[in-house]
Computed example of a mutant assay.
Amino acid sequence: MKQQNNPLPERLAALELLVNDTGLVDELKARQRAEADKRRAALAAELKALPNRERELAALAKDAAHEHAALEKAATQYREAERRDKEATARAVIAALTDEGARQAILTKLERSAPPELADALDDLSFADGLLRNAVRTDETANRSWTGVQVKAVTSNIDAIGAARAQLAEAQGAIRELARDGLMPSEAMVTRCAEIVAAAMEPAFAFIPRKLWDLRHDKPASDIVAEVRGYVQ
C-alpha cells in the first residue's frame, strides 16, 4: 500500500506538537537564558575589574584646562605684541616719510633757487644724449647707418657711444647735486657747472660736430638731427 504524503503545513504542525510533547522547546530556551546570563556575568566581572581612575581623570582634565588657559593667554599676548609692532612700524615709517618729505622740499627749493645756467646745462646734456641715442648709430653687420644709408667706413662705435652717454648721465647727476649745495656762491657754482659740462661733452664730440653744436640754440632740433645724420654718413 502506497504511503500518503501530508501537506507541508500539516507536517510542520505535527512536528511542533511532537516537540512540545517532548519538552525540547523549554530546554532550548533554558539553555539560551543560561548562555545570556553567562555573558552578562562575564561583562559584569570585566566592568568590576576596571580600575577606578576618577582622580587621575580629574587631574588630567585640570591639566588640560590649565594648558588651554595658558594657550589663550599666549594668544592674547601675541596679538597685543603684534599690534604694538605694527604701531611702532607705522610710527617709524611716518617719521621717515615726514623727514624725507621735509628734506625733498628743501632740496627742491635749493634747485629752484640755483642759477639758471644749471638748468640750461641740464637741457644741453639731455639734448646731447638724445643726439647720441637717435642720430649716431651704425650697424656693423649691414654696413649701414641708422638711417639705412650705406657708409664707406664702418667703425665699432656702439661701446664708445654707450660710454659717452654714461658720462653725460654722470654729469647730469653732478649738476643736480651742485644745485643742492646751498653754501657755494652762485658764481662759483656756474663756473663748476661749465667745467662739468665741458668734461662730459668731450667724448660726445667724437660723434657730434662741434660747429653744429655751437649753433644748437639757433636751429630747430630736427635740423640738427638731420645734419648730424649727414655728418655721420
Rank of each mutant, 00 (worst) to 15 (best):
A169M: 13
T147I: 02
E140I: 13
A169Q: 14
Q167N: 11
Q172P: 09
V149F: 05
W146F: 08
R144E: 07
W146M: 04
N157G: 06
S145I: 00
V149H: 08
G148C: 00
A153M: 10
A163C: 05
R144S: 06
A163L: 14
Q172L: 06
N143D: 08
D139Y: 06
V154M: 01
D139K: 03
N143H: 15
L168K: 02
I161S: 05
V149Q: 11
T147S: 06
Q150H: 12
T155E: 11
Q172H: 07
A174I: 01
V154G: 01
R165H: 03
A160E: 13
Q167Y: 01
E170H: 14
L168P: 10
T138S: 05
W146G: 08
T141S: 11
Q172V: 05
I175T: 02
A163P: 04
R144N: 01
E140W: 08
E170I: 06
G162N: 15
N157F: 02
A163W: 09
N157H: 07
Q150C: 08
Q150A: 15
V151Y: 00
R144K: 14
I161E: 09
D139M: 01
A169F: 10
G173R: 10
A163Y: 06
T147M: 03
E140Y: 12
R165M: 14
L168W: 01
A169R: 13
A169D: 15
S145A: 10
T147R: 03
I161K: 11
N157Q: 08
A163S: 12
I161C: 09
K152H: 07
T138E: 08
R165G: 04
A163R: 14
S145M: 08
G173Q: 14
V154E: 00
A166K: 13
D139R: 05
N143F: 12
N157W: 04
G148M: 00
I161M: 06
V151M: 09
W146C: 06
A166C: 07
T147V: 02
A171S: 03
V154Q: 02
A166W: 03
V149R: 14
R144A: 10
N157T: 15
D159N: 10
T141Q: 13
T141F: 12
N143G: 14
A174K: 11
I175C: 02
Q172G: 15
G173F: 04
R144G: 02
N157L: 05
S145P: 05
R144I: 13
S156Q: 12
T141V: 13
T155N: 11
T147A: 03
A160F: 09
T155H: 13
A142N: 07
S145N: 14
V154W: 01
G148Y: 00
T155C: 07
W146T: 08
V151K: 04
T138I: 13
V154S: 02
I158A: 15
L168R: 02
A163D: 13
V151A: 03
A153R: 09
W146D: 07
A169N: 13
A160M: 05
A166S: 15
